[in-house]
Design a binder for these strands. Structure first.
Lengths: 336, 336
DNA sequence: CTGTTAGCGCGTTCAC
DNA sequence: GTGAACGCGCTAACAG
């Protein structure tokens, strides 16, 4: 912090008036002489006066800073969300400080502590894959710091939440496959305790059920670490008899691996097997054939979450609501 | 900011000692009785005391905050850099506040002003495609706020800089093609006033020259908006006689489009034409054939830039240096 | 070793 | 309308 900065004290001295008068003039208070006010403003302009944010924070007890926890910044989806957040924040004159949890609980906790110690006025968090304990978040709330969870939420924790309707997204993806005539639709899912997995799996199951298609447990394969286990999953799926005619994958990167494998085996997509992913990762537009996928509105999630949080900061005692944003099915060649 | 927070005042009152003694105990000062210190620490622990960062900032005149300007957060390269920055920052107990310029000068300037008004101790900036004026940055420097530029730098502005040796990266990519026996190597470049374009083009030219290959102007095609014009560029290139046997593209997304086009025309990669991209975007591992490309160490750029900036903040009058990080050629199937 | 005093830059009473 | 005085939570200089 530069020490040569002009302060209201300087202005007061130069104008031969008191500090508090300067303060009033600057803050556009009501009971102030027009002339003195203009004089102050003029001098402030000339001297390039800028209020000291830190000092203001100290006395007003508000930092205008919001902390954001992101599992992994390099994820396309989360960086979109972050973009939405920063856009809204700057609109309301808030700043965002963000930390990555890198999907570990330890980093998540230490990040939260750092942000809180920096006096953020609110917290936007998407929990790591390891997180399931709400007690750390309870502590924060007890300090009176509002929390809004986005995307990866903790069901046990009561706060406003912004999520994507993954159930509907998965449901529509599978419905699309059914409409295309698919009858043996496999699903590559993730760990059973991850909400992402559960929601998408349920959407898959719901669509099959609503269209009177039997549910074959052999067609549901767990890829524990998503794309890292997708190859094994697709191999397993392709051994099942009678043969599948579609594979709905938990995310795009898994789907890309599936596409590669099928191609290597001479299995034609979409003619023999249709494939659908989830996320609308940029990659899905580039693979061959291009990948049908479920678009999640990351930017909108970020915008909405930040909007809600700022609301909660400004009017305390906001009701906890859960907002569910809708996905969009992006149909490309892998399911045509 | 919560008002119910425990302060050193509370601790002092409860222990019947003075505020400054508490402060000393907490800060682990030398001249303090072991017993009183332990008593303070114990009570602080019990009451869950946490120092008020804002108050500390005000008196110590340091906010421990660093501002980062990123052209576009969703770019894989920049999000990597950001990750590197946050890692180093947290190691040194600094926080990062970041803003996107979205590649516009207006947003860049307003972001900088915001960050400065928030009393960041230093600035890490990668300029937008529109920026060429150094005067805004001069103003910041005059306030005594150190600036380090990374990746997209302004040559006219004197400060420490961290860049990637794109010339060498391009040179090595083309050299690799030459070693593979290519003799008619085309290049899809970008706008002539963009440093990215210039550096990579020069690397291309240098490699041809050093290997005594003629430079054919017909083989150098400008794709003004990179991938958006890549299709036109490759079409043009494929019309040239004698036919090309390799295409070196300014970035991966352009290269992917080139691959698609060649495939659609029944031209085999790498047998008929070899293709190389730039960036090592995740997409390059997924396309078919997988794409040879030049990896830029984004994470390292971020780490180094943040390290230098923190150094400059801590010891004023640091010499301005330019660090040039090396790229790595990632050889995949498109050039095998 | 400890307490007193004096700020950091600003907002907010309260008299005048 | 304006100024003096105080406080936000903390550090630092100085006595003792």
């Amino acid at each position: 912090m530069r020490s040569d900065q002009v302060t209201i004290k300087d202005l007061a001295r130069l104008l031969n008036i008191s500090i508090s008068t300067v303060s009033r003039a600057l803050r556009n208070a009501s009971d102030i002489n027009r002339e003195t006010k203009e004089a102050v403003l003029k001098l402030a302009e000339e001297l390039n006066y800028e209020p000291n944010f830190i000092a203001q924070s100290l006395v007003k007890k508000q930092t205008k800073m919001i902390g954001v926890i992101v599992p992994a910044i390099h994820s396309n989806y989360f960086s979109q969300a972050l973009a939405g957040m920063t856009d809204v924040a700057s609109e309301f004159n808030y700043h965002v400080m963000f930390c990555q949890s890198n999907e570990t609980l330890a980093q998540e906790i230490s990040s939260i502590k750092k942000l809180v110690a920096s006096n953020v006025e609110g917290l936007l968090v998407s929990v790591s894959k390891e997180s399931s304990d709400i007690c750390e978040f309870e502590k924060i709330r007890q300090k009176g710091i509002p929390i809004v969870m986005y995307d990866r939420i903790l069901n046990g924790f009561s706060c406003s939440k912004v999520i994507v309707d993954e159930y509907e997204g998965a449901y529509n993806a599978v419905k699309h496959l059914i409409r295309k005539g698919c009858k043996r639709i496999a699903h590559i899912t993730g760990p059973t305790d991850l909400s992402v997995s559960v929601n998408r799996l349920n959407g898959y199951l719901g669509a099959l059920k609503d269209h009177n298609l039997p549910i074959d447990p052999d067609l549901i394969v767990i890829a524990k670490a998503f794309e890292e286990n997708a190859l094994m999953a697709v191999k397993k799926i392709m051994l099942v008899k009678p043969a599948v005619d579609a594979i709905f994958c938990i995310n795009d990167l898994s789907a890309v691996i599936v596409l590669k494998y099928l191609k290597s085996k001479g299995i034609k997509v979409p003619e023999d097997v249709r494939v659908v992913g989830f996320n609308d990762d940029p990659v899905s537009g580039y693979v061959e054939p291009s990948l049908t996928t479920v678009m999640q509105p990351g930017y909108e999630v970020g915008k909405l979450a930040m909007g809600i949080l700022i609301d909660e900061i400004q009017n305390k005692n906001f009701p906890c609501q859960t907002f569910r944003l809708r996905t969009k099915l992006v149909i490309r060649n892998s399911s045509k």
